[in-house]
Amino acid sequence: MEQRILGKTGRSVSVVGLGTWQLGADWGSVEPEQAQAVLAASAEAGVRFFDTADVYGDGRSEQAIGTFLAQNPGLDITVATKMGRRAEQVPENYSLANFRQWVDRSRKNLGTDTLDLVQLHCPPTPVYSSAEVYDALDTLVAEGAIRNYGVSVERTDEALEAIRHSGTASVQIILNAFRLKPLDEVLPAAKAAGVGIIARVPLASGLLTGKYTRDTDFPEDDHRNYNRTGSAFDVGETFSGVDFELGLKAVAEFEQLVPAGASMAQAAIAWAAARDGVTTVIPGARNVKQAQANAAAASVALGEEFDDGVRWIYDHYFRDAIHPRW
């Protein structure tokens, strides 16, 4: 699989990575054995980047990855975790003392002395412009607790603020065929600054797989059920913030663009990976078949007509609602 350098980390990662939110919580239950099988299938298919967070299943996702790496010590896999969402979301909680506690917990979960990449997990907007926060993160690097740090954001203005700070190695942002705003300023700014871009939610919470209908029933513990109005966290994390029924109409248009031999999901992942400035795309997978299919998206080639079609769909269905908000 194609490898790219992840911004200022200097680390080589696969163009298709693995998001592991689903291995911890909020997508229905995933048994530990199933989680290990997904990690193994991804690694076997060439995936060399796992993204997790301390809040996913209250550490279960990190622990699953830690177990896998301990059992496969020869694999050169970069692990990015996130911190901050286990505490009340107020700027004053983003302090060096809390960072040390959160990082120590993640190091234990992942079974490592030094974390490859730690990302602030969509904190309150003022945190991105706090010099004290970046000083604290620099301290953790100097102490050897983390190698690099980055941010995960909800909005493009948050990404642009983080890119301004010299220590920011990477920015994780929602980017998919239904969420194009990062293409305007964030990707060019990141590229100019040498900051890596991790594209998350590439399948719009599964909408872009084409598997859902108006009658699809999501489990009670699945955020696609309980967070459609943003009652638990930013609604942009669920179906990329688009109305579900409107999204289904757009999916029917998207399906017409998909080239022969590729699935809708593979085309969506390949499109995101082909955007100039994107380092890696991190779809999730709940089973081995999904993990293998997602990794295979790295070899899907798309023409200009596909990109033109994606932009038409966005302009026709989503721009007015999505572009001003995120």
Rank of each mutant, 00 (worst) to 15 (best):
V133M: 09
L137E: 06
V133K: 04
G150T: 01
V127R: 00
V153P: 02
T156N: 13
S152R: 01
A145S: 10
D135A: 15
Y134Q: 12
I146M: 03
P126R: 03
Y149E: 02
E132Q: 13
G144V: 09
P126E: 05
E132I: 06
Y128K: 00
I146K: 04
D138K: 12
R155F: 09
S129F: 01
A131T: 09
R147T: 04
E154M: 11
S152F: 01
Y128S: 00
D138R: 14
G150E: 01
D138W: 12
Y149C: 03
S129G: 14
A142M: 13
V133P: 02
G144E: 08
D135K: 13
V151D: 01
Y149F: 07
T156H: 09
V133R: 03
Y149N: 02
G144K: 09
N148Y: 03
T156G: 09
R147Y: 02
A145C: 06
V153A: 07
S130E: 11
S129K: 05
G144C: 07
V127Q: 01
N148M: 00
S129Y: 00
E143G: 11
A142G: 14
T156D: 12
S152C: 06
P126H: 07
V151W: 00
E154T: 11
V133H: 07
E143W: 08
A136E: 07
T139F: 10
Y149P: 01
D135N: 12
E154K: 09
